[in-house]
Design a protein around this nucleic acid. Structure first.
Lengths: 115, 115
DNA sequence: TTCGTCTATCGTCGATTGACGATGAATAGG
DNA sequence: CCTATTCATCGTCAATCGACGATAGACGAA
């Protein structure tokens, strides 16, 4: 809700992401189990709860911890739907990291010529 | 040299990057000092050697270790230019991570409408 | 050769991470 | 009421990370 009309305003929505911000984002993705979870949420658009535990094959407490890390980084959001919790991706949170990668591609590859 | 005509062949160039691969890539970026180094190589296109040590403000051995990690992940390459070493970015190595982020953006945002 | 510069590696230390089981809280259904 | 389900939190353990100083190797210059 907070990032509603972000594309309308030119300046304040781009506070030039800190190196720490980007590193924190990368750190949240820096584990196979968490990549697995992100991919899971990518294909089953519908949010899933305990199914994640079955899918990744780790203990429930371990998966819960990974979900906590992803949530703390803002990469996923958990909506309470008693007694389950509904997890979804929050694409906007990944913008700073994607922006850095885009900058690398632009600088390193003269003409991608796609599009 | 190995990835010359990669865009011509349809299958072998896209082995569906493993979660481990992407996680390793993210892990290599999961530190402020390493983000700093990447950004440095991004603005000073020319490869730099010991200037990195001055710039990040850590001990030489520590910076060397960060450079080793980035190099091991394939994100940068070091060209020997005695007695210095010339570091440059290797954008292609970041493709798997960027591809995941793109997939998240596509799935999560209905119509980007760019292009 | 000797000196100075630039890097890489080693060893060590404290801090953090990742995994687990056990426990606890909140809710739906009997 | 009691029970089952789902998730979060706690405590503990081994493993890894990040930082540093010290050291060693490779070369250019004097």
């Amino acid at each position: 809700m907070a990032a509603a009309t972000a594309r309308s305003v030119p300046a304040p929505a781009r506070p030039a992401p800190t190196g720490d911000d980007i590193a924190a984002l990368a750190k949240a993705l820096a584990h196979p189990a968490r990549i697995h979870i992100v991919r899971l949420l990518l294909e089953k658009r519908t949010c899933i709860g305990c199914d994640i535990v079955d899918e990744v094959g780790l203990a429930q407490s371990t998966v819960s911890e990974h979900l906590r890390i992803l949530k703390a980084a803002g990469i996923i959001t958990g909506e309470i739907e008693r007694p389950r919790i509904c997890y979804s991706l929050n694409p906007a949170s990944l913008r700073p990291l994607a922006a850095l990668l885009d900058a690398v591609f632009e600088a390193g590859e003269p003409e991608p010529s796609v599009c």
